[in-house]
């Protein structure tokens, strides 16, 4: 089919660019013990790649399920719900109890709760199809506000020493990533991405809309709920590692769609993940060495994402 080799070529180009960025990230300006440098930077690099992949894949999938290119899981309050569960656990168990569970079990519990809650909530809202899109968006936004307010309330109520235990920052911090969760997150991210990869043809059909999907024999509700559960798990990964990220997913999803001009998720998902990795790694590289850490990656990335959001809205891509 004409055009296909060209698009695959772009994917390869992206991968090459990312590879180059990773190598530069690990080696540029390194002084002293190589083993230490590689381990230290390697962990940071790993975190950026995992977070980038999680956000990118989650956003592309969520946009397909909701049929809208200006929505992200964050707009719907999914990451706010994650932070709420985190704070709730501290509130109920106290700082000591919370710390006693251990970061891995805690993360799994939070992710599991989020998967359940997100599928319940958004499964209900999305079940009726895109006709209810506006209601779904409004409901999601309101729930996001609700979750953030409840989180804030509980943070004021818990003991200040307990509060220090909670990771729920208001904004993402790419600089200090929770590296003790990195291994678990990477595995979880890989498993979920593999599951979504297996669903790639179903996701293509889902993009046609509810009626066309049902007409073509796709188990619509089941597929939507499965996709949302996986999206929620990916959001858990990224939020647990760096905190809530609002617009970055939108930026990389838009870039992936724009660069590829291909509707197939078999190409979109990898492209978005590569794009996210590239933006984060190259961005951090530039900030570290050119701007001398004068500003944080999250600020730049969210700013760029916000601009992407405005651009999409004004261009009328919402459809």
């Amino acid at each position: 089919m004409p055009g296909r080799p060209v698009r695959d070529g772009r994917l390869i180009l992206l991968a090459a660019a990312l590879g180059l960025a990773c190598v530069l990230f690990l080696t540029v300006g390194a002084q002293g013990d190589w083993a230490f440098v590689l381990r230290f930077r390697g962990a940071k690099l790993g975190a950026l790649l995992v977070v980038g992949t999680a956000i990118a894949v989650a956003t592309v999938t969520f946009q397909t399920v909701s049929g809208n290119r200006i929505l992200t899981p964050s707009v719907m309050g999914i990451d706010a719900l994650f932070l709420l569960f985190q704070t709730l656990l501290v509130f109920l168990l106290g700082g000591a109890g919370f710390a006693a569970i251990g970061p891995h079990l805690r993360f799994l519990a939070e992710a599991g709760l989020l998967m359940g809650a997100a599928t319940l909530l958004f499964g209900l809202l999305l079940g009726r199809g895109r006709a209810d899109l506006h209601r779904m968006v409004l409901t999601g936004i309101i729930f996001g506000v609700l979750f953030r307010s409840l989180t804030g309330l509980m943070q004021r109520m818990i003991d200040p020493s307990d509060f220090a235990v909670v990771q729920s920052a208001a904004f993402a911090r790419f600089s200090s990533v929770e590296t003790d969760l990195l291994g678990l997150s990477a595995v979880l991210c890989a498993v979920i991405c593999a599951a979504l990869w297996r669903m790639r043809h179903a996701l293509d059909v889902l993009a046609l809309g509810r009626e066309a999907a049902i007409g073509l024999g796709l188990a619509y509700r089941r597929t939507v709920i499965a996709a949302l559960a996986l999206v929620a798990a990916l959001v858990s990964v990224s939020t647990a590692l760096v905190g809530p990220v609002t617009f970055f997913g939108l930026l990389v999803a838009a870039l992936a769609h724009g660069v590829l001009a291909d509707h197939r998720h078999a190409r979109l998902l990898p492209a978005a993940a590569l794009m996210a990795g590239l933006v984060l790694v190259a961005g951090q590289l530039v900030l570290d060495h050119v701007f001398d850490l004068a500003t944080t990656l999250s600020v730049v990335v969210e700013f760029a994402g916000g601009l992407a959001f405005l651009f999409l809205v004004l261009k009328g891509s919402a459809r």
């Binding site: 809208n68 993009a207 046609l208 009626e211 509707h263 459809r319």
Partner: peptide
């Protein structure tokens, strides 16, 4: 049916 609007390119 008649009113299918497809979002993807």
């Amino acid at each position: 049916r008649q009113d299918t609007t497809i979002a993807t390119r």
